[in-house]
Computed example of a mutant assay.
Amino acid sequence: MRQSILIAFFLIFASSGLFFPVNLKAQALGSDIEVTISPENPGPNQSVYASVVSYSTNINTANITWKINGKTSLKGIGEKTFQFVTGDLNKLTTLEIDVITNEGDKIVKIISFKPVAVDLTWQTTGLTPPFFKGRTLFSHENKITFIAVPHMIGTNGREVSPNNLVYKWKLNGSVMDSDSGYGKSTYNMTGSIISRPLQVEVEVTSANTAGVGYAETVVNPIDPTVVLYRKSPLYGIEFQKALIGTVSMNDSKEASIIGMPYFFGVSSPYSPQLSYKWSINGISIDNDTTQTTRVFRQIEGTNGTSNISLSIENSYKILQVSRSEFDLTFGQKTAQ
């Protein structure tokens, strides 16, 4: 009986310092099989589906044996599919598939799994006010950095340094070759003018261990935001209460209103890239687009309601535009 065993090893060129993965197959008269694993990079204690297919022999009549860590789990004629569960984090699981064809050829496939946990997070540039407790959200055309934090255990029983691992980054299904490689645990990019969700994947491997780590995330770019606040001469900006809906001046003769841009791709609200366009009842106040704050005064003996609106635009990033408004009542006492 002829036997074909898939062997994977590294061919090392000492003179150049390079190493290349090489797969050798000892073909049994063309009888070979392909193995499909889903998911390709399973995590710890995760169900895995495996299947075999052949284009050179009738796999439906072959005697197929599935083994996990050397122990037979399933055996029979035409047993083309198999389900198993991976081990704990950083624990090796070996899947062996023995196929005996009608022609008497034996083919052996061995696949190893060592789940590695990878934390994938991100951070982005963008303007937020002082003491902002929330997360800076990713806005159109801003810069964003993805950070992979793998937890891979080496042969010495200790966690391998992220700087000693190999990273393969993908953006929307395409491999980012220049950003992938040894020690490249971060991936930096700038949002496109054609705004769409960012699907980022990272695969982490090591030349010294069998572990493979995988993580993915999807980040949806958002529109920047403008929030209007009242500015008090005693307490400063009243960040605790955004101005929306209807706001009354009560007994005050004037109201100082400040527009605060959120998540715009600038470092300061006073950046020359930003244009502030204030209006009352849809009519522009003036042509000055540098004023972050406006003071609205009540004319003696009048009462009513005026719509106050502010539009902020980033002249360097055309997708970064936002508008906010509220109705300001005056000349009457209205509970806020």
Rank of each mutant, 00 (worst) to 15 (best):
S15F: 04
V52M: 10
T186F: 11
P233F: 06
Y167L: 03
I5D: 11
G265P: 08
G259L: 00
D327S: 12
E159D: 11
T290G: 06
L171K: 08
S275N: 05
T124Y: 07
P233Y: 06
G154L: 00
A215N: 12
S31H: 14
G104A: 04
Q332H: 08
G43L: 05
Y55S: 15
E40N: 14
T36Y: 14
L18F: 07
P224L: 08
I59K: 00
F239M: 06
S284N: 08
S139P: 04
S267K: 10
I12M: 09
E313Y: 03
E34F: 14
K170Y: 15
I318Q: 10
K317C: 07
S206P: 01
Y55I: 13
R196T: 09
N156M: 12
D288H: 04
T289V: 12
T93S: 14
D179H: 12
A8M: 11
G211C: 08
L274C: 08
G78W: 02
Y49M: 15
L11P: 02
G236Y: 01
Q298F: 04
Q83V: 15
S51A: 14
E300N: 04
V227I: 09
K133D: 13
Y167R: 02
T190R: 13
V226T: 03
S267H: 06
V99I: 07
R294A: 04
F138L: 07
T246Q: 12
I147C: 03
Q27K: 07
V108H: 12
P221M: 00
P224M: 07
L6C: 10
D88R: 11
K71S: 05
S279N: 12
E203Q: 13
D105A: 11
R135Y: 01
S185Q: 09
S161D: 15
A242C: 00
Y55D: 15
